[in-house]
Simulated assay, not measured.
Amino acid sequence: MIRLSGRLVCMTEEERAAVLTHRPAHEAATRAEAGCISFRIDDTDDPMIFDVSESFRDRAAFDAHQTRTRDSAWFAATRRILRDFRVEELRD
């Protein structure tokens, strides 16, 4: 299993608005991907920071997600937002 956790850190209201606008479609598209176990982008106490957590069945599913994301409206709108992510590969 591959697990990603971390934060999106917005520096401007425009970045925050991009997350809020594109989050629902991005979450729905990701949850529908083959191999997605879980995917969440949650608000925090700081309105400029969002917690991100995602789990995928294996490296292939995670890589497919990354490829799809790079070609999405979500990525076009949020690519400049600071991402503070940690990726772990969990083995049985």
Rank of each mutant, 00 (worst) to 15 (best):
G6I: 10
R7P: 00
R7G: 04
L8Y: 14
L8T: 08
L8C: 07
V9K: 12
C10S: 05
M11K: 14
M11H: 15
M11Q: 15
M11V: 03
T12I: 04
E14T: 10
E14L: 02
E15H: 02
E15I: 00
A17Q: 13
A18T: 00
A18F: 01
A18C: 05
V19I: 14
V19Q: 10
L20D: 12
T21I: 02
H22F: 12
H22M: 01
H22Q: 13
R23Y: 12
R23T: 05
R23S: 07
P24A: 09
A25G: 07
H26F: 13
H26L: 09
E27V: 15
A28I: 06
A28M: 09
A29C: 01
T30I: 04
T30F: 00
T30L: 06
T30S: 15
R31V: 04
E33L: 12
E33C: 06
A34D: 15
G35A: 12
G35P: 08
I37N: 08
I37P: 07
I37Y: 07
I37E: 15
I37M: 12
S38L: 12
S38Y: 09
F39V: 03
F39M: 07
I41R: 06
I41D: 05
D42R: 11
D42P: 00
D42N: 14
D43C: 05
D43K: 09
T44R: 13
T44W: 10
D46R: 01
D46Q: 05
P47W: 10
I49H: 00
F50Q: 02
D51Y: 10
D51W: 05
V52G: 01
V52D: 10
S53A: 13
S53N: 09
E54S: 15
E54F: 08
F56Q: 06
D58R: 12
D58Y: 10
D58E: 08
R59E: 15
R59I: 13
A60V: 09
A60H: 07
A61T: 06
F62H: 15
D63T: 09
A64T: 13
A64R: 13
H65E: 04
H65C: 02
H65L: 04
H65R: 05
T67F: 12
T67G: 06
R68M: 07
T69N: 12
T69M: 15
T69L: 14
T69G: 06
T69E: 11
T69P: 03
T69D: 08
R70P: 01
R70D: 03
S72L: 07
S72H: 11
A73V: 11
A73K: 09
W74Q: 04
W74L: 02
W74C: 04
W74I: 08
A76Q: 10
A76T: 10
A76L: 12
A77S: 07
A77G: 01
T78M: 07
T78I: 12
T78N: 10
T78H: 08
R79E: 09
R79F: 09
R80E: 15
R80P: 01
R80T: 13
I81N: 02
